[in-house]
Nucleic acid binder design. Structure first.
Length: 982
DNA sequence: GCCCTTA
DNA sequence: TAAGGGCAACGCCTT
DNA sequence: AAGGCG
């Protein structure tokens, strides 16, 4: 009987009853529920039930009914617990039978076990099966008994429906359990009787009485106090006031997540939310959400507002400090993004009728010149973080704030007031200017259909219907706020599909859609209508439809696109004959005439492709860019075609299985001297060279310089890695004075990381000149400069020689020759430097920068700080300047550098980097920074060393092999400087 | 946003 | 029933 | 390039 129960549990670990205590019914449970059976027979007729509160992964209720016949507890898990409202059906999932002992079980099921979490008895009592009870006496005189001949387990197996009366301390009255079509799913429904509480009814006298009573103390208080789950322990340890408040709030919220709105409001009223300091209230409050509804309606109890297409914003306006604070739907502080709103509030402070502060709910909207919301423009603003851009954008694209609710006023929580009253308060509060940035969102009573018609004509996003009497329910999708979206629909022709991922890998991921563009009819004939691409849809398919459509499409596959021009592809595409018609809904047309967020609705077997025309839309049609105008799109398209037979698999699959992307992407465009170099070529180069490269970058923080679109595309620097990364990628947090916080640097200590970096578009690698000593110490302001961290102690002194730049003669045709000339001049200086080093008996190493300069490394023991090595380098630069007067400059100013070699000793500083040895440089020719023998330096042209030949040239020898082990002592060297001949 | 799974 | 996870679209900004 | 947002 209890095999399933036993099989799921390990009774050596779990305190739950094993179910092996024999079958004797014990009096003790009966005693607990205050019955005094006098005979054994009477005892046998008593059927008991229990509701247990089970804090497992989710808080839920376990409902158990005793089957005397089988000596087990029939069990259901009820996520939301019982409801006393007959109109509320509660899902009950049938779970395995439990032993009778479980009736009074309370305890903690340890982590890792089945049902891990705490179990408490929430209500316990007896029940009687309905069929045995005289309807009149139902609920009045509990008979507590059921005939021995009928057992609940029989009814359940036979009928899939059972009705019974519960006689508990919290839960009383008639209930039914009804089986649904899906296996194991039942519904627990309260019948109408004197215990029922109908929340929905308006003339309900027991308004304040809860339909559900999860918050009542548990019956077994004493036992319960021993049951402490992780969460409460944690909270109990914090006893500062704020945390106490947080605790209360959390606990009500924890229950509240399962409550319906009426009860949620009541708990909010009773909680300390009413007295919260303003900041705490503001920070904690979550926006109330709305449920989706299909159609608008007319109803006296409702009001209707425009659904503004913008960004939800909760605002704290503080009159005392003359500030406002705006937070987004997710709780992020976004005040700084909208300086114009801050200003507007400042100006409004004098003119409003509140004393202290208010908390408002609204939507930030960017309006176009005609006053219509423009979300696409808004997107350009909403993620911008740089101050300058924010200021600029706030002037050219200012936003407005439509306020539609007030949650808090001068220390008073208004969330439990009826909506209509809150709106009254709100309208008395502000005198808003007609074209000011702070506006109150209008509403219309009753006439929802009219409002919807109007917003449809205006092409707005939709309407929100709000129940006049409703309270503000935080963070909940409440049915008292309904969104009715102005959705558009479109019949489309499927022209292709992409492969699905994850559990959709055996089907398609999305469908490529096309329709007939009426506006270009003049270029087409009736027999050959012009199909244009209008987007991908990947949502709205149920399991069955997914496979149905897939089966249909598989027979229609063709080798190339059935339409002339597809502006972009998001992944590998399989084309199909344009035969199948579907209907999708979508929110709007984007600027490129692509549907925004299209959702599959249904297959239209009743329509032919020729009927799929695009309806006229109000917004202006912006012509789609031609292929030639957008080379990037062109590239993407061709890449995807090429991928079928490309070396993508060769590179990603066979070598090490690390994922790479867009290997065919052109990173260096073709030139007279070389064909184009792809990202795949770059990956191949580094995979050949990693043994040479890795020793020079291990344990060194990296500054990434990224070129995701090749050397001609936009590039950016990146130091702080904030998002996720593969497990093999090491990082180190380094304290930064300028940020007054730690920067999380990438460290490349293995081949996989190198591959990952290259795939991110890091053409070159920029390591620090010092290594991490202890990865856990560098984020500490006190350690970052001492030897615990290690990063302040470089391994080499570096000299960066850059040839003169002649700004006047930037003529690309002369470039190679010109470069060689300046390189030769740099070599001369390098040799002079080398002679100084020889005089000082210093070992030095040279590499090309990969461009026209040279990098000279003097390896040292890492005992000296950057400040010391920089001083040393400065001394060397002075000596050099005396030996070769007027040939070098250490001045950054380019005018000063004209005709001279720039000798940069300032690179010997904390956090400064150079492109590492064997780095490919993002310049024409895909040249590489290569190490050289000093003697060979005047024989080579740095342009000769490219990503293509370096692996071969350096396969056998590496002039820098001894570098890392040649750790020289600066003090000895300094001793020799004084006796140096200039 | 939608579907599916989970309890 | 309803919350959470997985999978999709598009355009945008960020690093 | 990849993540995150609405």
């Amino acid at each position: 009987m209890l095999e399933e129960y036993k099989g799921k549990r390990n009774f050596k670990i779990s305190p739950e009853p094993s179910g092996d205590n024999g079958s004797e019914r014990k009096n003790e449970y009966i005693d607990k529920i205050n019955l005094n059976p006098t005979t054994h027979d009477e005892l046998a007729t008593i059927h008991r039930f229990v509701f247990q509160k089970h804090k497992a992964t989710h808080l839920h209720f376990d409902f158990r009914l005793e089957s005397v016949k089988n000596n087990v507890l029939l069990s259901w898990a009820i996520p939301k617990g019982p409801s006393l409202d007959p109109s509320v059906k509660r899902l009950a999932i049938r779970t395995e039978d439990h032993p009778i002992d479980y009736l009074t079980f309370e305890g903690i099921i340890p982590k890792g076990n089945y049902g891990a979490g705490s179990v408490t008895v929430w209500d316990i009592g007896t029940f009687s099966l309905e069929s045995e009870i005289d309807a009149k006496s139902s609920g009045k005189k509990p008979p507590h008994t059921t005939s021995l001949s009928e057992d609940i387990s029989d009814i359940i197996h036979k009928k899939g429906k059972v009705t019974f009366n519960l006689y508990g301390q919290k839960i009383k009255g008639k209930f039914s359990l009804v089986k649904t079509r899906t296996s194991n799913q039942w519904l627990l429904i309260k019948h109408k009787d004197k215990y029922a509480i109908e929340v929905a009814s308006k003339d309900n006298k027991n308004k304040n009485q809860k339909a559900e009573s999860h918050n009542k103390p548990d019956l077994t208080e004493t036992t319960h106090t021993n049951i402490v789950d992780d969460h409460t322990t944690k909270i109990q340890k914090n006893n500062c006031k704020v945390k106490e408040i947080a605790k209360e709030h959390y606990q009500t919220a924890e229950c509240g997540c399962q409550l319906d709105e009426t009860q949620k409001d009541i708990t909010a009223n009773n909680s300390s939310l009413n007295h919260l300091p303003k900041l705490i209230f503001f920070e904690r409050v979550k926006p109330m959400l709305s449920c989706a509804a299909d159609t608008a309606f007319n109803n006296r109890d409702w009001v209707f507002e425009i659904k503004w297409d913008g960004i939800r914003a909760i605002t704290l306006v503080d009159k005392l400090t003359q500030t406002c604070k705006i937070k987004s739907r997710s709780g992020e502080d976004i005040t700084y993004r909208y300086p114009e709103l801050e200003n507007a509030f400042k100006n409004a402070f004098m003119k409003n009728n509140f004393r202290d502060f208010v908390v408002l709910d609204g939507e930030i909207v960017l309006l176009d010149s005609k006053g219509y919301p423009n979300f696409q423009k808004h997107q350009k603003r909403m993620n911008v973080t740089s101050d300058r851009n924010i200021q600029y954008l706030s002037k050219i694209y200012p936003v407005v704030l439509y306020i539609f609710d007030i949650l808090y006023l001068d220390g008073q929580n208004l969330t439990s007031y009826p909506f209509i009253q809150r709106r009254k308060i709100l309208s008395h509060l502000f005198t808003t200017e007609k074209n000011g940035l702070i506006r109150i969102s209008d509403f219309v009573e009753e006439a929802g259909l009219n409002v919807f018609e109007t917003i449809q004509k205006m092409n707005l996003e939709g309407v929100i219907a709000k129940l006049k009497s409703s309270q503000y329910v935080e963070g909940i999708r409440s049915k008292s706020w309904l969104k009715i979206k102005n959705v558009k629909t479109q019949d489309c022709i499927i022209i292709g599909y992409t492969k699905g991922e994850g559990n959709r890998k055996n089907y398609f991921g999305s469908l490529l859609l096309a329709a007939i563009d009426k506006s270009s009819q003049n270029t087409t004939t009736i027999n050959n209508p012009k199909l244009i691409f209008i987007g991908h849809t990947g949502s709205g398919f149920s399991c069955g439809v997914l496979s149905d459509i897939y089966e249909i499409l598989r027979d229609l596959v063709v080798s190339s696109s059935p339409i002339d021009y597809v502006p972009y592809l998001n992944r590998h595409t399989i084309w199909v004959k344009p035969k199948v018609v579907i209907e999708v809904k979508f929110t709007d047309w984007t600027n490129n005439k692509i549907m925004r967020a299209p959702i599959f609705q249904r297959i239209r077997t009743d329509k032919s492709p020729s009927e799929c025309t695009i309806e006229n839309t109000i917004d202006t049609i912006i012509p789609i860019v031609k292929i030639n105008e957008r080379s990037r799109e062109n590239d993407l398209t061709s890449n995807i075609f090429k991928n079928n037979n490309s070396k993508m698999n060769e590179i990603s699959g066979s070598k090490d299985g690390l994922p790479v992307s867009n290997v065919e992407k052109e990173f260096w465009p073709q030139t007279k001297s070389h064909s184009s170099v792809t990202k795949g070529d770059l990956i191949e180069y580094y995979s050949k060279m990693y043994t040479h490269l890795l020793p020079f970058i291990i344990d060194r923080p990296l500054s990434l310089s990224r070129y995701p679109n090749g050397i001609t595309g936009d590039a950016f620097y990146q130091k702080d890695w904030k998002t996720k990364r593969p497990g093999f990628v090491k990082t180190v947090k380094v304290y930064s004075e300028s940020n007054n916080s730690a920067i999380n640097y990438i460290v490349c200590n293995n081949q996989q990381t190198l591959r990952w970096l290259i795939n991110l578009g890091c053409i070159e690698i920029h390591p620090w000149n010092s290594r991490v000593f202890d990865y856990d110490q560098c984020d500490n302001v006190n350690n970052v400069e001492n030897d615990k961290c290690g990063l302040n102690y470089p391994d080499f002194i570096i000299f960066d020689l850059d040839p003169y730049i002649n700004i006047d003669t930037q003529d690309e045709s002369k470039e190679p020759l010109y470069n060689l000339e300046s390189f030769k001049a740099t070599v001369e200086i390098a040799y002079s430097l080398k002679r100084i080093f020889e005089d000082l008996k210093i070992k030095s190493f040279v590499k090309t920068s990969g461009k026209t300069g040279l990098h000279i490394f003097v390896p040292i023991v890492n005992y000296y700080t950057y400040d010391q090595t920089r001083q040393f380098a400065k001394v060397i630069s002075q000596i050099l300047n005396q030996r070769v007067p007027n040939k070098i400059t250490t001045n950054w100013k380019t005018s000063d550098r004209k005709g001279k070699i720039f000798f940069d000793y300032n690179q010997n500083s904390f956090g400064k980097t150079l492109a590492s040895v064997f780095s490919v440089r993002p310049v024409e020719g895909a040249t590489v920074s290569v190490p050289l023998e000093w003697e060979k330096l005047d024989e080579i042209n740095p342009q000769e060393f490219t990503l293509f030949n370096v692996p071969d040239v350096y396969r056998r020898s590496n002039p820098w092999v001894g570098l890392l082990s040649s750790k020289q002592n600066l003090e000895e060297i300094l001793g020799r400087i004084s006796s140096l001949d200039i």
